[in-house]
């Protein structure tokens, strides 16, 4: 599908519809926008902690002192805009096939961005492969959606996938914490753990969307073949049989389950979807899971 067609009026209407639905799904459609869990100088009480020398005396809760004769500081949630970083994989594996994962990823990001913008969140898009391949600075407001469209349209395929390298650069460049939505097939020869760990360790809230193509799991080729890795170019002489295809599917399942298990254990929201599924359905699934809007 051509890029121009992807973000037409019909698509925009669909985004609006998704936004409305998302608001219904998200409980308490308050105007107050999402707050970060950063404890700071906000108005809303968050917690207590014991006083340490050098703390601001204005925050000492004297009532508690009266009762307990111990100095406690009142902690408030710092109110600031939510930053949503869309980390989208632009490695060649995302561009394989027609339609491909990349097309799907663009529409997914456009949808989520729109909803984020509509919620007055700050939305930033950062394509990556083995490095960061550009950056859309954080934007806010629904009107910014066209800027996002343009950015998505102009994105080019990148290098081989390396989540670790790319996310290490990301966390050093982006000091503002926020939600990091990773849209990728996670076909990283060095593994996905390192990259996701970088996000976690730097207090980002990762949300993992694993895309895969159903056709990859059920290819129509058999016999003596040379399999060429579309990213690394490595060649493997293989005699593909039906039995081998079953084994390949099993290996993919194992790989995906490994990713899912990793995320689950670390309380990272994880979504896996074939690109044959309608993207709005995935969007709604994400909302229903409650990870994107609160």
């Amino acid at each position: 599908m051509a890029a121009e067609e992807q973000f037409d009026d019909a698509f925009l209407k669909k985004l609006e519809y998704l936004y409305i639905i998302s608001k219904k799904i998200a409980s308490g459609a308050i105007r107050a926008k999402r707050k970060t869990k950063i404890v700071g100088s906000g108005l809303e009480f968050a917690d207590y902690r014991e006083y340490s020398p050098g703390d601001d005396l204005r925050n000492i809760d004297w009532r508690v002192f009266a009762r307990t004769e111990k100095l406690f500081l009142k902690l408030f949630e710092e109110e600031e805009d939510l930053y949503i970083y869309f980390l989208v994989d632009t490695s060649p594996s995302m561009f394989l096939g027609d339609p491909n994962k990349w097309e799907y990823a663009k529409r997914l990001i456009a949808s989520l961005s729109y909803i984020g913008l509509a919620n007055l969140d700050r939305v930033s898009i950062i394509p990556f492969s083995s490095k960061l391949d550009g950056r859309l600075p954080p934007s806010r407001g629904r009107a910014q959606i066209f800027k996002i469209f343009d950015f998505l349209r102009e994105m080019e395929p990148g290098d081989t996938t390396s989540l670790g390298e790319a996310f290490r650069t990301f966390v050093t460049q982006n000091k503002r914490r926020g939600m990091a939505v990773v849209v990728s097939d996670f076909y990283d020869p060095s593994g996905f753990e390192e990259g996701l760990n970088y996000l976690r360790y730097h207090k980002f809230e990762p949300l993992v969307v694993q895309l895969y193509d159903q056709r990859e799991l059920n290819p129509n080729f058999r016999g003596d073949l040379q399999l060429v890795d579309c990213e690394t170019g490595s060649i493997a002489d293989v005699t593909v049989t039906s039995a081998m295809m079953k084994e390949y599917v099993a290996a993919f399942e194992k790989f995906s389950e490994g990713l899912e298990e990793y995320c689950t254990k670390r309380q990272i929201l994880y979504f896996r979807t074939p690109i044959q599924l309608e993207f709005d359905e995935l969007v709604l699934t994400i909302f229903r899971a409650g990870g994107f809007l609160k």
Binding site: L96, P219, D224, L225, Q226, L227, V228, D229, A236, E247
Partner: peptide, 16 residues
């Protein structure tokens, strides 16, 4: 032999 592009050869290598 016919050449086929695959997105992620490590999976195939694992199978082999």
């Amino acid at each position: 032999k016919r050449r086929i592009q695959v997105p992620f050869s490590p999976l195939w290598k694992q199978v082999l």
